[in-house]
């Protein structure tokens, strides 16, 4: 794909293999590129490994086999031990967790937004400026002194986004960004991500929500339930391939109203899907 594209590769993922202790393989022979300025969606059913892949991309987990390069630099446990490399990488890559509660570990929103800039050694004036600007941009100024447990899910998501944007990262990794949000907050999120994308940020989301992917992503990477890549391609065409989407369990037969024949076929998958889910818990 896109081999003759003039854009630089931001992430180069090569033959990545990952298993959790205990032996469950979550990523099997994964290779793809994230191009600078792209907006990409990693798609697959629950438990297919897309969240794990995001953590691997963020240098929180490290593959057993294969390697990942970020702007041509090898991303490994050792590389991240170097202070300079770590700071450079963390400044460039922002990660938004699915569960905002994990991300919001500081006692107040203000401290939350300041956490990243502070630890990446920005000057106090810069930190203050960034906190102010970001909270105005995301309309959360009134929340600044509030503790995270007194906020709604939508507010938490905004704060989580603010806490990452305050680093001014060039890539945003988002894990299931629309999960648990009401329609209004979802629309707000899509608009914000589009704005950021237009401003030149690279966006990588992991999701199984076809609607939001349709709105945001140019490119999709589809995972099957064997933890491998099923297909990589431009979003518009790939998401039209209903047969493939059914195969990887991203859509249900009711999505396109097929006959009885597919019905029984899909149920077989359904039990598999549940099985995967249990393992994941």
């Amino acid at each position: 794909m896109d081999s003759d594209c003039p854009q630089r590769s931001l992430f180069e993922v090569r033959q990545v293999h990952f298993a959790y202790p205990g032996g469950d393989v979550v990523l099997d022979d994964i290779s793809f590129d994230v191009l600078e300025g792209a907006s990409m969606a990693l798609m697959g059913a629950n438990g297919c490994g897309k969240s794990t892949l995001l953590k691997v991309l963020d240098g929180l987990l490290f593959p057993m086999k294969g390697n990942i390069r970020f702007f041509g630099e090898e991303l490994s446990e050792n590389a991240l031990k170097s202070d300079n490399f770590n700071r450079w990488f963390r400044r460039n890559v922002g990660f938004i967790f699915q569960q905002s509660d994990i991300q919001l570990f500081s006692p107040t929103v203000e401290e939350e937004i300041a956490f990243g800039p502070l630890h990446l050694h920005l000057s106090p004036q810069q930190v203050k400026q960034r906190v102010e600007d970001i909270s105005e941009m995301l309309e959360i100024t009134h929340l600044l002194q509030r503790p995270p447990y007194l906020m709604s899910g939508g507010e938490k998501k905004k704060v989580a986004l603010a806490s990452v944007l305050s680093l001014n990262p060039s890539v945003l990794l988002l894990d299931e960004p629309s999960a648990g949000l009401d329609p209004r907050s979802q629309m707000w999120l899509v608009e914000t991500l589009k704005k950021l994308h237009n401003a030149g940020k690279t966006i990588v989301i992991a999701s199984h929500d076809l609607d939001i992917v349709d709105d945001i992503a140019d490119t999709v990477v589809i995972f099957n339930e064997k933890h491998r890549i099923e297909e990589v391609g431009p979003a518009k065409e790939t998401l039209k391939n209903t047969e493939m989407l059914l195969r990887v369990n991203l859509i249900h037969e009711h999505y396109h109203r097929h006959g009885d024949e597919i019905h029984s076929h899909v149920h077989a998958h359904d039990s598999e899907h549940k099985h995967q889910h249990d393992d994941d818990e």
Binding site: D58, G59, L60, R90, F105, E111, H119, L120
Partner: peptide
């Protein structure tokens, strides 16, 4: 699990062990 994830979230935003506060 929460510990593991929070540790990841902290590292992801540049935490390397030293404490800095507003």
């Amino acid at each position: 699990n929460l510990t593991e994830d929070i540790h990841g979230a902290m590292r992801s935003r540049g935490w390397g062990g030293e404490t800095r506060f507003l």
